[in-house]
Simulated assay, not measured.
Amino acid sequence: MVAFSMRKVPNRETTEISHVLLCNVTQRVSFWFVVTDPSKNHTLPANEVQSAIRENKGSS
């Protein structure tokens, strides 16, 4: 869902599932994630990811 949401953001059409990294996964379904931009070798800002997810949820 995150990768799909990011593809709808202008200039982010190339976001793939492999760009979404799950971190600190536990058995109790607790985790955090980051979205990477491999072309610039950094993670995307949280507000950009949150905005993309919110816009995608509103379009369903």
Score class of each variant (00 low, 15 high):
Met1Gly: 15
Met1Tyr: 07
Ala3Val: 00
Phe4Cys: 06
Phe4Arg: 10
Phe4Gly: 02
Ser5Lys: 00
Met6Thr: 01
Arg7Lys: 15
Arg7Asp: 00
Arg7Ser: 02
Lys8Leu: 05
Val9Gln: 04
Val9Glu: 04
Val9Ala: 03
Val9Met: 02
Val9Ser: 01
Pro10Ile: 01
Arg12Ser: 02
Glu13Leu: 07
Glu13Asn: 09
Glu13His: 04
Glu13Thr: 04
Thr14Ser: 13
Thr14Glu: 14
Thr15Cys: 08
Thr15Gln: 01
Thr15Phe: 00
Glu16Gln: 09
Glu16Asp: 06
Ile17Lys: 15
Ile17Met: 10
Ile17Arg: 08
Ser18Ile: 03
Ser18Val: 04
His19Tyr: 04
Val20Tyr: 01
Val20Glu: 00
Leu22Ala: 07
Cys23Gln: 12
Cys23His: 15
Val25Arg: 15
Val25Ala: 05
Thr26Asp: 07
Gln27Tyr: 08
Arg28Met: 10
Arg28Gly: 14
Arg28Trp: 01
Val29Leu: 14
Phe31Ala: 15
Phe31Asp: 06
Trp32Asp: 15
Phe33Ile: 02
Phe33Glu: 04
Val34Asn: 06
Val34Ile: 13
Val35Thr: 00
Thr36Cys: 07
Thr36Gly: 06
Asp37Ile: 03
Asp37Lys: 01
Ser39Tyr: 12
Ser39Gln: 09
Lys40Ser: 15
Lys40Ala: 15
His42Ser: 11
Thr43Tyr: 06
Leu44His: 08
Leu44Arg: 12
Pro45Cys: 09
Pro45Trp: 08
Ala46Arg: 12
Ala46Leu: 11
Glu48Asn: 10
Val49Pro: 00
Val49Asp: 00
Gln50Asp: 04
Gln50Gly: 03
Ser51Arg: 07
Ser51Pro: 06
Ala52Gly: 10
Ala52Lys: 01
Ile53Asn: 02
Ile53Thr: 00
Ile53Ala: 03
Arg54Cys: 06
Arg54Phe: 14
Arg54Gln: 13
Arg54Asp: 12
Glu55Pro: 08
Asn56Cys: 13
Asn56His: 13
Asn56Tyr: 14
Lys57Arg: 11
Lys57Cys: 09
Lys57Phe: 11
Gly58Arg: 03
Gly58Gln: 08
Ser59Val: 13
Ser59Lys: 02
Ser59Arg: 03
Ser59Pro: 08
Ser60Asn: 14
Ser60Pro: 10
